[in-house]
């Protein structure tokens, strides 16, 4: 069980002080850049009016225009650097403190229970893993950050923020080929070692009116089955290559836990079970696990990040992935 936010917050004091300095430096840079832009525009406009010379005024306005772009770029970079620095210092410290203070569950052996974590703000889950999940929509480009991997008890896990982009080429009214980028997914991809061994593939996909995913899975050899839980069937379309194995994976208890997780999340959740692993794609509009530049209440920001972490770390406990009731090969 993870410690409460209130109990670990005092441990973050020193890094929060460093983050505050970093925030102040970033803000200073941004305000300085804005000030330079304003001064340049004032000079350009003022010189144009005072001299009455169009060519001088025009040149100065052109210079101010270029400088605006440069200084806006520098400000964006400063903000980005602050967020990365915040992730490296504060968020990393937060997640490490959570794992350092994790309480070993009563039914686990304290000497054998392992709790370790790695946080890499610049990395993301690999493309192959996303494709292997079988629930990712078709994509051509991927962006991502905030990669977290580790082990909790007998379960290894990894997750990160990802954004999948599909590129299509369309012809406009003049017949010119135009590149159109469409975001097909933004959210969290979570992968964990499942507590049962299985060979087939089982997918829990969202029920849509026009469902291309269902046809793609059918093409891969999966067929639709209905589970015993009516509410579960309303929420998910269960597709599998082996219906006995699907029912072995989806015990009544796990279905209940999945429903609880889905009901808590406001956005779409899809799951798959392949190669003895569990994949979750959780759509989310917001950016998780990062600091805010123009927000001085770090306690509130960190609590939000802590809660976001708990959403995913608790899956292992909630789905009882550590409950190794059999000898998994």
């Amino acid at each position: 069980m993870f410690p409460s936010f209130e109990s670990i917050y005092p441990e973050l004091g020193p890094v929060l002080k460093e983050a505050e300095d970093s925030r102040a430096a970033a803000k200073k840079k941004i305000f300085r850049n804005i000030l330079i832009i304003l001064i340049l525009w004032a000079i350009a406009i003022g010189a144009g009016i005072l001299t009455g010379n169009g060519s001088i005024g025009g040149t100065l306005i052109f210079v101010a225009f270029i400088a605006t772009f440069v200084f806006i770029g520098l400000s964006v970079r400063a903000a980005k650097e602050f967020r990365l620095d915040y992730s490296r210092r504060v968020v990393r410290k937060l997640v490490h403190t959570m794992f350092k203070n994790v309480e070993v569950p009563d039914d686990e052996d304290e000497d054998e229970y392992e709790a370790s974590v790695r946080f890499m703000p610049n990395k993301r889950i690999g493309v192959n893993k996303i494709s292997t999940s079988g629930i990712a929509p078709r994509f051509d480009r991927i962006r991502g950050e905030d990669y977290i991997s580790g082990r909790l008890g007998a379960t290894t896990f990894e997750f990160s923020e990802i954004e999948l982009i599909d590129i299509q080429y369309k012809k406009d009214s003049n017949g010119n080929r135009k590149k159109v980028e469409k975001r097909v997914f933004k959210g969290i991809m979570f992968i964990a070692d499942f507590h049962k061994h299985f060979q087939g593939e089982t997918y829990l996909i969202d029920k849509k009116f026009f469902d291309t995913e269902r046809f793609e899975l059918k093409f891969k050899g999966a067929f639709e089955i209905e589970m015993e839980d009516i509410a579960f069937n309303k929420e998910f379309r269960t597709m599998t290559t082996d219906d006995i194995e699907a029912r072995y994976i989806l015990s009544s208890n796990l279905m209940e836990r999945i429903m609880e997780f889905t009901n808590r999340s406001k956005d779409e959740v899809e799951l798959s079970f392949k190669n003895s692993k569990m994949y979750i794609m959780h759509e989310a509009r917001k950016n998780h696990f990062e600091g805010k530049l123009f927000e001085n209440n770090d306690e509130e920001t960190l609590k939000e990040i802590y809660n976001d972490f708990r959403t995913y770390f608790d899956i292992i406990e909630e789905f009882r992935l550590n409950r190794r009731i059999w000898s998994k090969s």
Binding site: I244, I325, W326, S327
Partner: peptide, 15 residues
């Protein structure tokens, strides 16, 4: 553990 696992598989087959 093996027995419990077999019983879970048995239950899945029945379902």
């Amino acid at each position: 553990r093996t027995t419990t696992d077999i019983e879970e598989k048995l239950s899945a087959s029945r379902r």
